[in-house]
């Protein structure tokens, strides 16, 4: 169990410190990345054709075009590839349907741009508004979870009893899908009169809590025996050892935990919006979209959530690079 993944309950980041180290050493050449992304987008466009062919032909027939075979009932017997072969000229319609099963990339981009820039930020149609609702809960929960997690890690490093009692449970908790208790927390807190941002923040907090505990215990333990011995020969107190050695040495681990924790917090806030039928937030957008079959809206909300996650992780990465470089620990 000593090799427990930091990221397990997050539903988000899935990479270990070792992988990150390998990934960092790879250089930053953009060419292959652009090529892979372009291929993915091309696959996406191609996939729109078979996914949407039924609706496309239905719409074309209603608009008066000649569709072979005629009538939706006859078409339902055929596979999507056969339908595509029978009506090649009508296929481009699959990229501009109003309610597609799989929206084309440019449709999602338009919806995303419209949601971000085309609406006033207080409107319920604005993705900025929904993203802020989710982000505020995420950040509050992340701050609480990280703070408590670091405190517990400090306790665990300094107390043998706490280490032996709590640490195994913290590690086991990483193997358990603790997100399953999210709906219950919302309802229980609601029944005692707490609602709004706090229940979501609580869920965000406990999802970021355990990765931070496990990561920070490793971080505080990272100074080797030689370094600890040196401070002991200086007659340093426990507080001095902590402040001058353990804390600085733990910073790389802190940032790794923070990245995992913030991704987990965001997932927590989104999932927390599902079971109560929340009115606002990215999770509520996902749920409303799935109720009303608005696939473009779901995809736009999904990409907004992805951008938010990437932004948060990127921001922490920036702080990390700046701070570690100042401390002489950067690459």
């Amino acid at each position: 169990m000593s090799d427990a993944p930091l990221s397990a309950p997050s539903g988000g980041i899935g990479r270990s410190a070792r992988v990150a180290a390998v990934a960092r050493g790879m250089g930053h050449r953009a060419g292959p990345v652009v090529a892979v992304v372009a291929v993915l987008v091309a696959i996406w466009y191609a996939a729109c054709l078979p996914m949407n062919v039924g609706n496309t032909l239905l719409q074309a027939e209603r608009a008066g075009a000649v569709v072979t075979p005629e009538g939706p009932a006859a078409r339902r017997q055929m596979g999507s590839v056969a339908l595509m072969a029978a009506n090649p000229s009508l296929l481009p319609g699959a990229w501009s349907l109003e309610r597609p099963r799989l929206p084309a990339p440019h449709q999602v981009a338009v919806a995303l741009w419209d949601g971000v820039a085309g609406q006033s930020v207080t409107s319920a149609r604005s993705l900025v508004y929904h993203a802020w609702v989710t982000l505020s809960a995420t950040l509050l929960g992340f701050a609480i979870g990280t703070g408590l997690g670091i405190l517990l890690a400090v306790g665990i490093v300094h107390s043998r009893v706490m280490e032996m009692s709590v640490m195994p449970w913290a590690i086991v908790s990483q193997t358990v899908p603790i997100i399953a208790i999210a709906p219950m927390i919302i309802v229980v807190l609601y029944s005692v009169g707490v609602q709004g941002i706090v229940p979501k923040a609580v869920i965000s907090a406990y999802l970021s809590f355990f990765p931070v505990v496990v990561g920070m215990v490793t971080g505080f333990r990272s100074p080797d025996a030689m370094q600890l011995d040196l401070l002991r020969t200086y007659a340093a107190t426990r507080a001095q050892i902590f402040g001058k050695l353990r804390l600085p040495a733990s910073l790389p681990y802190l940032f790794a935990s923070l990245k995992i924790g913030v991704a987990a917090s965001l997932v927590g806030a989104i999932v927390a919006e599902l079971p109560t039928g929340a009115q606002a937030g990215l999770g509520a957008r996902l749920l409303a979209g799935s109720y009303y079959g608005q696939n473009i809206q779901i995809w736009a909300a999904l990409f907004a959530a992805a951008l938010l996650a990437a932004g948060l992780v990127g921001l922490i990465g920036l702080v990390e690079r700046g701070l570690l470089a100042r401390m002489g620990m950067g690459q």
């Binding site: 990934a23 959530a305 992805a306």
Partner: peptide
């Protein structure tokens, strides 16, 4: 090699995203 250079950053990026959000889409499909 080319695929690796392209896929690994994309994979790392994707691994950090809230992929559970694809659930409503896939349930719909």
């Amino acid at each position: 090699e080319f695929l690796r250079r392209g896929l690994l950053p994309v994979g790392n990026f994707m691994a950090a995203l809230p992929i559970v959000g694809t659930a409503p889409i896939l349930v719909g499909w």
